[in-house]
Nucleic acid binder design. Structure first.
Lengths: 145, 145
DNA sequence: TTTACTGCAAATAATTTGCAAAACT
DNA sequence: AGTTTTGCAAATTATTTGCAGTAAA
């Protein structure tokens, strides 16, 4: 488990205390290998020890995001999805019918990044962009207009 | 006020009843000329007559969205933003510091639209995409890493 | 007159907060 | 020891829902 150690070390280096709760939360995120919600982390940690509170999960996540160790994305489903910053950039294709989320190549956003910077002076955070639409599987189910 | 009449006519044509509440809600959206929230519509309509319920606003908005007369966008601030479909396609640049929202040209998303279709079979709904980042004004306030 | 629509009030659901007790360093 | 961090429970916020009464058609 090398990656969660990096995160834990970063927490320490920033002057924050290492508690068993934080350690377990960090491990849950680092080992997930995908985006997870606060609730999922809560369930996962609770099944290991029983001793955690959902408020602690939220507070720790806020901290990790602020330190830049974890990224968060709003996929428009009312929850916030978290992932280790180690998880490379990509965008999320969110289907409005089945709700499925596909990760797409980040490269196709690069030209947009540049143009937003030039034309609007806007530095976009495209590393976890959520794009709504209809997935390939749901294409046929949709009534053609 | 020609545009709200279009929406009202469309409601009628679809077999829905025209109530004073719906009329006022539709007018609020059509005349806003920008995206507004359910709460804003509520306040606006209430100041005109006092007789509306927030639940009615939500139910009417759901209906209008379903009929395709109104579009809704999640700008990641916990609210849903509504606009008349008459309001042309564009994307929203949402600043994560000051929260300001800038409308950007839709044209720069067209290449992405095409590539998502080709490579992933995903038909993106980019007409009101929200892009998180940092606006020009907040650029200087941010601590350079 | 029929039944779609509204108002009201209570229910959700995810997240946040205040405060006293517990535990890192 | 001293301050950070946690747990608990209550608060918040945006939105939804059940149901009985009201009003378009």
């Amino acid at each position: 488990m090398p990656h969660c150690h990096t995160l834990i070390a970063a927490l320490r280096r920033s002057g924050y205390r290492l508690t068993p709760q934080r350690e377990m939360i960090v491990e849950a995120i680092a080992h997930a290998g995908r985006h997870i919600t606060a609730e999922e982390i809560f369930e996962q940690v609770r099944s290991r020890t029983g001793a955690v509170n959902i408020a602690t999960i939220y507070r720790t996540l806020d901290l990790l995001v602020e330190l830049g160790l974890v990224s968060c994305t709003d996929l428009g489903d009312g929850k916030i999805w978290y992932a280790s910053s180690h998880h490379g950039p990509h965008c999320h294709l969110v289907c409005r019918y089945c709700g499925c989320v596909t990760e797409a190549d980040y490269a196709l956003l690069i030209p947009i990044d540049e143009r937003l910077r030039e034309q609007y002076g806007f530095v976009a955070d495209l590393h976890h962009l959520a794009i709504p639409g209809v997935c390939a599987a749901c294409q046929s189910k949709t009534n053609p207009r």
